[in-house]
């Protein structure tokens, strides 16, 4: 009986999973399919391209606009991620380990930032950045990204730090380590999965952002890919750039996939097992 129930449950869950995966992946596959179609067959409604072509990819890489945006995106996202994770790690460590005055306030404020509707900040930010000369520069995007990624980083990382037994740090100190050595040689290696998880989340947030990118940039000096796609036009004004846009969309998902795959291997759950008790 029990075995039958589990088999049936497995089948049921399996079907449910398939539905979810198909629902999520069909639009992505559709975009990929469109990017390989020729302009003539673009609107034929067929899922599988009848004529394969790489022209769309050639087009986007021929235009300076797209390549430049790609460079902007990668640079801005990487810098923002690095700074947010480093700052977040320090703040999260303090929050999970120390009792300092204003701790609750700090946590509360960072939560507040995370909940703030970003769209309401767009106009003031625009004004401020114009006054400060940050408008349409890399720092002009990196700063707001860090601001909005930090609460996320602090929350995720402090959850990870809290899982690490405090005894380990005490043990390291007894073994003759300074505070810095204890953090670097014992705590940091154990927090690595948390750091990588956070890095992925923050990177995706920066990479995908459209709102700040479209308001705080005006030229391709700092325009990121999601915005660049918006400004995409064909060779002539009357040409339909759908194929090229799809190709660009495929291209910009690739770094995300690579980034996740690269770090996923380091997110090993249960890394701390065996540290304490049995």
């Amino acid at each position: 009986m029990a075995v039958e129930t589990t088999t049936r449950a497995k089948v049921r869950w399996g079907l449910l999973d398939v539905v979810v995966v198909v629902f999520a992946l069909v639009p992505v596959l559709w975009i990929a399919s469109l990017s390989f179609k020729t302009p003539a067959t673009l609107t034929d409604g067929k899922f599988w391209p009848r004529e394969w072509t790489l022209d769309n990819y050639r087009t986007i890489f021929d235009t300076d606009q797209f390549v430049r945006a790609l460079v902007n995106s990668i640079g801005i996202a990487l810098i923002a991620t690095t700074i947010a994770v480093v700052l977040g790690a320090m703040a999260a460590y303090a929050i999970s380990r120390l009792d300092f005055p204003g701790k609750k306030l700090l946590v509360g404020v960072s939560l507040l930032i995370a909940m703030f509707p970003q769209v309401s900040l767009v106009s003031p930010l625009f004004e401020i950045e114009r006054q400060l000369g940050l408008f349409d520069t890399w720092p002009g995007l990196i700063l707001p990204y860090i601001t909005f990624a930090l609460p996320l980083a602090i929350y995720t990382l402090s959850a990870f730090f809290k899982q690490i037994p405090w005894d380990l740090e005490k043990a390291a100190k007894m073994d003759g380590a300074t505070q810095a050595q204890a953090f670097r040689r014992v705590i940091a290696p154990l927090a690595a999965p948390g750091v990588f998880t956070t890095a992925i989340l923050v990177f995706i947030f920066c990479w995908n952002d459209f709102l700040f990118a479209i308001t705080l940039t005006s030229t391709e000096r700092s325009r990121t890919v999601p915005v660049a796609l918006q400004f995409f036009t064909g060779e002539s004004q009357f040409e339909d750039p759908t194929g090229a846009i799809c190709a660009a969309a495929v291209v910009i998902t690739v770094p995300i996939i690579l980034f996740v795959l690269f770090f996923q291997r380091r997110i090993v759950s249960g890394l701390t097992s065996g540290a304490v008790k049995g």
Binding site: A171, P189, L190, A275
Partner: peptide
């Protein structure tokens, strides 16, 4: 003095072994 300057060793209830 900091723990590391006292030259004493400690065994913890939780053992506190470094899992990595």
């Amino acid at each position: 003095k900091a723990p590391r300057d006292r030259d004493i060793a400690m065994v913890f209830q939780s053992y506190a072994l470094y899992p990595n």
